[in-house]
Design a protein around this nucleic acid. Sequence first.
DNA 1: GAAAGTCACGAAAACGTTTGCGTGTTAAAA
DNA 2: TTTTAACACGCAAACGTTTTCGTGACTTTC
Lengths: 348, 348
Amino acid sequence: MKRKITLKQIARELDVSISTVSKALKNSKEISADTIQKVQAFAKLYNYRPNNIALSLKNRKTNTIGIIIPEIVHHFFSKVIRGVELVANKRGYNVIIGLSNESFSKEVINMEMLANGSIDGFILSMSKETLLQQDYHHYNETMNQGMPIVMFDRVVSDIKCDKVIVDDFNGAKNAVQKLISNQCNHIALITTKDYVSVGRLRTQGYLEALEENKITPQAELILKMDDTLDYEVHLEALEAEIEQLFKAHKNIDGVFAVNELYALSAMKVARRLGLNVPDDIQVIGFTDGVLSKHSTPSLTTVSQHAQLMGERAADLLIDKIETDFDTEEEQFQTVVINTELVERESTK
Amino acid sequence: MKRKITLKQIARELDVSISTVSKALKNSKEISADTIQKVQAFAKLYNYRPNNIALSLKNRKTNTIGIIIPEIVHHFFSKVIRGVELVANKRGYNVIIGLSNESFSKEVINMEMLANGSIDGFILSMSKETLLQQDYHHYNETMNQGMPIVMFDRVVSDIKCDKVIVDDFNGAKNAVQKLISNQCNHIALITTKDYVSVGRLRTQGYLEALEENKITPQAELILKMDDTLDYEVHLEALEAEIEQLFKAHKNIDGVFAVNELYALSAMKVARRLGLNVPDDIQVIGFTDGVLSKHSTPSLTTVSQHAQLMGERAADLLIDKIETDFDTEEEQFQTVVINTELVERESTK
DNA sequence: GAAAGTCACGAAAACGTTTGCGTGTTAAAA
DNA sequence: TTTTAACACGCAAACGTTTTCGTGACTTTC
């Protein structure tokens, strides 16, 4: 087991100075052709590679970006990561991940852990708890220390930084418009409580679509789930709520759900109640998940282009990192990713 | 925008030496109570945190582990990552990810990028291309440089390192035994080509179960898919193959598939052919995916406990990292994770 | 043959830490 | 009063780089 070779060792072996070796490896014209040849041959033989940590320290630049997400076992987030990794790698950066697990304190701890020199900037999506508590001091402190942040998907306007978001409003509006065009007159909405920014925007899109079509929104058709519960393990609770809604309003002929699980549950409940999808009731979900494609009937969805979000976020962050010259006032931008309606079997 | 504060700056402000500050922060008894109090107060005020990169360089230890996987948008792998992250964080480590995208060269590049000081060890699962080419020089070189590797799931015996694997053989065998016990007499196997180690083992488990029950395996009932194709986008090709199999052997009453997609496709094709699952044909898939739970009918699966694999792999790696004193001969262990049969609607 | 210029290399600082050791000051022991 | 010990702190090296600035040995120019 031989440790990685260093400049110092090469220098000693070849009986030259460390600086000569360093320069020789860079083909500096300060160094004679002879020496360059000798050093490079030796370096190649021993497979010399500069130590990243030493470079990071010297350059005060790690070429690593940190990504903090609430959860990784989730198609949306893992697709975002894939996008981030793709452009990060292309541009010579590594990616280091931190999971907040939807917890405020884990988010803070993770960020502090990474902010002490390990990375050059953050890409993050807020945890639900942070969204709820509205405590953003850790973001601001991080940015005050000169570390750029790009937020995606779950953002709040109070924080001044670059952002990449989905056009939740129009995505939802178009979906509901589709249902309306398909002759749905009583469209239910299954959404989250309003503190989740994306849920709120999608709800607004739903309302707007109704209004544009002179349909009076009915509060009773809107189901706001308390999503502090993990419905992946409490499926029955979710289904029970939906079943109650369907039974109370037998005229429901369309459902718009703000995520995959809600939409799938709606279809399941419908089937259980003897309703045919899409003949009796049409369903659209806002999601990038895999379930939609493979469910029966397959689910019409509003796709969020998660991977593209990751790519754009990474480009935004790296651009900011590399134009570090703190010029005049900071200029922050918000990139809006357009959604796409993917029509499948759950709509006519 | 104030840069992060350093020992040197504190020292200058307080008119003491850098070493005094360092020691004071560590409550060294070399330093007077007065000074300690003064330094700590100042440090707290300015929110001093030691620079990780400098520490890494000094200690030749990064407290970061690298994880290389073929793909992240995949439930199995993202669950493994979650497991790794969980114990890594608990034990004071960060996780940095690299995606090989099933490509040999990307795997090599990623490993070289991380191996130059950025991390203390690797957790990885081999890309299909590496498996196919059987070129393992990058693993051996990495280990020769004193960097430990823990492999999981996709492993080969030629490489001497710690491993965490699923008991593919018995998992498959038990699943097939279940089908047999459920009165299936003609059980088809949908698997991958043999170079994928896990596919081969699962195939062996299938055969073993048949033999133990005095059932003669029929080669025509075994479908070996060429999985260099991404069937997520070429679903029809996959389904066509399965349909052909079902049509050629109308007596098939059970299917064991080595992954989720194959199993789901089998169910889909069965339904299309007018066969009822599980009455006419029972299906079991080897998978940890989400689709199984939400499909109709829901799929009986052999669960691999992916998160646990990640946890065990991380513990194994960190243990090795922290007992670095290169003692006598290396001792490598292979942890085998037991599978669990999760019974759902696709079996009786 | 002296001044100027080129060439090829080395010394040292810097990035931010930690830590073994040396040292000046004061207090206790002889 | 002298010796010794304790105390409180600073110096400097080390981790592995990069880069600026010297500098000695030649070579060229007048």
